[in-house]
Amino acid sequence: MSILPLAAGPRRSDPAPARSLPRRAGIGLKPEHFRAILQTLPDLGFFEIHAENYMVEGGPFHHWLTRIREHYALSVHGVGLSIGGAAPLDEAHLDRLAALLDRYQPESFSEHLAWSSHGGNFYNDLLPVAYDRVTLARVCEHIDRVQTRLRRRMLLENPATYVEFAASTMDETGFISEVVARSGCGLLLDVNNLYVSCTNHGRDARDSIRRLPLDTVAQIHLAGFAVESDSLGAPLLIDSHGTPVAEEVWRLYCHVLDRVGRTPTLIERDNDIPALPVLLAEAARADEILCRLAPMRRDEVRA
């Protein structure tokens, strides 16, 4: 069943990879769903993988991804490059990334405004950075290195954070705007992260959206959060990716689409992975909103 008129079902053996993701909804690729995807070939805009999961020599992960890639557009999303880290980028990791991108030729590559490695240890979390001039210069330098090494433009994702730094001299939107302007990278606008961070730091989400470089948004992420509270009882939202997308985030998504137009949108789920049809239903909801709300972009009309 196809909801969008522009989608005539999954692309089969498309010879030349498109230069960008289809402006539709996609979901994260999970090993739990490998077989079901190939058996049913659901009508979906794209799949996204976490790059590090496929940085192994061989075996089932590559087997399934290779086959799924034959039918779908692909977004590669890094979670371990530590772009916000104080240390120089891990060149060996960049080499692994380059090899992965070379092998699968994804339509999009993105990473996070965060750090995760220090002193040779990997902390497996997206850790926050101070928004100051020193960090700004370093992040821009790192993104420049990534784009040079990978020979492609990358998208940078706005973070979900739980603390702020007293040393910050810029606000988050100002920092991101500077990074995007200086490095030429695109923005992956994670609407859930934006909502989580705004709630956790007493900011207005719509005001934050207005102050981001929306013309550079090339992908959107949607996910679910968990609710805890801080020591004063104020809500502290956790970017758990373990529940369906919250209604507040869907509303914010509509608000964003009004401003950025039709944009590839990922439903992210990393915890308590449900059956494939559950995620497909969430993707269908995003597709329905994309179709109803978002005007065609000028470049899309031409194409």
Partner: peptide, 16 residues
């Protein structure tokens, strides 16, 4: 049993 992908973006909720 099959192995899962171990790199992800999840944050551990409810186990603080």
């Amino acid at each position: 049993v099959a192995l899962k992908g171990k790199n992800d973006c999840k944050a551990g909720a409810g186990t603080s």
